[in-house]
């Protein structure tokens, strides 16, 4: 029973997500093949659903990979400089090559995010920490340096406010034709699943990994590459969504343990469900307007995380 609950919840959320919106879409309209209803569905609702599910799965997986590589449960793209680096990359692409297309922007974001993550892991591995909580502090510090560079740039070119715009995840502009890049997450998810066992071994540390015959550097680099692709694809299409990568893996680890091969599908389902729920909430909260998902996910995720912390440590 409990095994079926999560997939059922996920399916329910998917249906809800298709139904909810400014434009009413009813089953009867669909069944009578009303063109208008089908157009809304295929041009806006389905792309949105796909983008939501992929982003949720991708971000949750990113959290898992980063947490395994850094060996710290409080790491995710937002607390390791990855998001800020992607943002900086887009900003630089805009000022250096203003005519650049979406793919070009994404490549910039990808490159920045990847290099920044490599550097972050190098820094973290170099420092001996007194408390695991300080790892995300250094990550945030690192992120704030990157975003100070970005702000420095943006301030001079006077687009600080519009930059705040892409910082915040928002699915409302997703329609057919402008979101397809997000499908890049699909192969990433498959690869992550295939490499799950390697990441579990990575989490035991370099010494242990080597003695088990695993090339630490190569595999960690691979993991960071997967993260960079996911982060840059989501930032380009929907913007930044904090906390998904943090909350979901922690929740799953609490209830299902840490054997990645077994828990990754659960992480994926949780991630997608969390985003779907937050999105539906955002669409209903100030109907007919929308609260961007970055905000709903940020606050729901933040509150869930706080509750987790408080329950765990008190």
């Amino acid at each position: 029973m409990r095994r079926a609950a999560l997939p059922l919840l996920f399916l329910l959320l998917c249906c809800l997500s298709l139904m909810v919106g400014v434009k009413q879409v009813s089953w009867s309209a669909l069944l009578s093949f009303s063109d208008d209803a089908w157009l809304t569905l295929t041009a806006s609702r389905l792309p949105r659903l796909a983008a939501l599910v992929l982003t949720g799965v991708g971000l949750a997986m990113c959290g898992v990979i980063l947490q395994q590589i850094v060996r710290n449960r409080f790491v995710e793209p937002a607390t390791s400089g990855g998001l800020d680096a992607a943002k900086l990359g887009i900003l630089i692409s805009l000022t250096v090559v203003p005519s650049i297309g979406t793919v070009g922007k994404m490549l910039f974001a990808l490159a920045f995010c990847f290099v920044a993550s490599l550097l972050y892991v190098a820094i973290i591995r170099h420092i001996k920490f007194k408390s695991i909580v300080l790892v995300p502090v250094v990550g945030l510090m690192y992120g704030s340096v990157l975003s100070a560079i970005a702000e420095f740039y943006a301030y001079r070119h006077n687009f600080l406010q519009s930059m705040q715009g892409w910082l915040l995840g928002d699915f409302s502009k997703i329609v057919q034709g402008n979101y397809e890049i997000i499908y890049l997450i699909l192969p990433i998810v498959v690869l992550t699943y295939l490499f799950a066992q390697r990441f579990t071994v990575l989490a035991m540390g370099e010494g242990m990994a080597s003695s088990l015959g695993l090339n630490y550097t190569a595999n960690a680099t691979l993991g960071l590459m997967l993260v960079a692709v996911t982060v840059s694809a989501t930032v380009i299409t929907v913007g930044a969504i904090p906390f998904v990568g943090l909350v979901v893996p922690n929740l799953v680890a609490m209830y299902y343990g840490e054997n990645l091969e077994r828990t990754l599908p659960i992480v994926a389902l949780y991630g997608a469900s969390l985003l779907l729920a937050c999105d539906i909430l955002g669409r209903l909260l100030i109907y007919p307007f929308e609260v961007p998902i970055g905000l709903t996910a940020g606050s729901v995720g933040g509150v869930v995380f706080l509750v987790l912390l408080i329950r765990k440590y008190t």
């Binding site: 408390s131 300080l134 995300p136 915040l168 609260v291 905000l295 606050s299 933040g302 995380f305 912390l309």
Partner: peptide, 29 residues
């Protein structure tokens, strides 16, 4: 409980930064 509190501060900062960004989007230039 310094470390616990630090984590709390971090999460609060992140949540609030998101709120602040949202509000910034909503207001006029």
């Amino acid at each position: 409980n310094v470390y616990m509190l630090l984590l709390l501060g971090l999460v609060l900062s992140m949540v609030m930064a998101t709120f602040t960004q949202f509000i910034q989007l909503k207001i006029s230039p």
